[in-house]
């Protein structure tokens, strides 16, 4: 009973929040609505008994991803309305029909199939976090390591792309070049202050 109430409440809230994210013309409304929607999605994970996944959802999405978006939006002019041109509705209709057919297959697959066996059955004797750790560090160790390397590459790429003069290596440059780069950098800064 309570499960049903919680499910319908959070389903309605999530759908409303994500609809606002998709439909609004204000970038800040979209950002805040999506942060709220991410929190509401973690409620489904807690209802489904995936406690660790729910905690990760809150930490990673509303903690890290939303913070990166908020940081990125400081670079863009977000106070004005987002103006978007509409063109080629036939293309959108064809893509939408294809996506609808695909979604029907995806949703029917787990309902139609009957003789499925659990690879890593859920053990109620241990907690969710403990069981997740045991499966993750035995059966999924290689994907876990690859994900770690991928996150490291993404972090370095983000720093190099967004940081100022991060594409130059100070260790590979001569002293004169560094001094020259430093001079031009401070010159730029004073110019910006003058503006």
């Amino acid at each position: 009973m309570f499960e049903a109430i919680a499910f319908y409440l959070f389903a309605a809230l999530t759908i409303v929040m994500f609809t606002i994210t998709v439909m609004t013309s204000q970038a800040l409304y979209a950002l805040t609505a999506m942060a709220a929607g991410m929190i509401f999605i973690s409620a489904f994970f807690f209802i489904l008994g995936a406690d660790f996944l729910g905690a990760i959802q809150i930490i990673v999405y509303t903690g890290a991803v939303m913070a990166i978006y908020a940081f990125g939006m400081m670079f863009f002019d977000t106070t004005r309305n987002v103006i978007e041109k509409r063109s080629n509705p036939r293309f959108v209709v064809v893509l939408g029909a294809l996506a609808a057919v695909l979604v029907v297959f995806i949703v029917l697959a787990p309902i139609v199939t009957t003789n499925l066996n659990a690879n890593y059955p859920i053990d109620l004797a241990v907690g969710n976090s403990q069981a997740i750790g045991m499966v993750l560090f035995t059966k999924y160790l290689v994907p876990f390591e690859l994900a770690a390397v991928m996150l490291l590459v993404a972090m370095i790429a983000g720093i190099v792309l967004a940081g100022k003069k991060m594409d130059k290596s100070l260790t590979l440059m001569t002293e004169e070049d560094i001094a020259l780069m430093h001079d031009s950098f401070t010159h730029e800064a004073t110019q910006e202050e003058a503006h």
Binding site: I56, V65, Y69, M150, A154, A157, V160
Partner: peptide
């Protein structure tokens, strides 16, 4: 749940590179 974890990891790195 394992696949959901890896999807979250991919989403995080996608945001970092894409926003950069």
């Amino acid at each position: 749940q394992m696949f959901a974890f890896f999807i979250i990891a991919i989403a995080a790195s996608e945001v970092a590179v894409g926003l950069g």
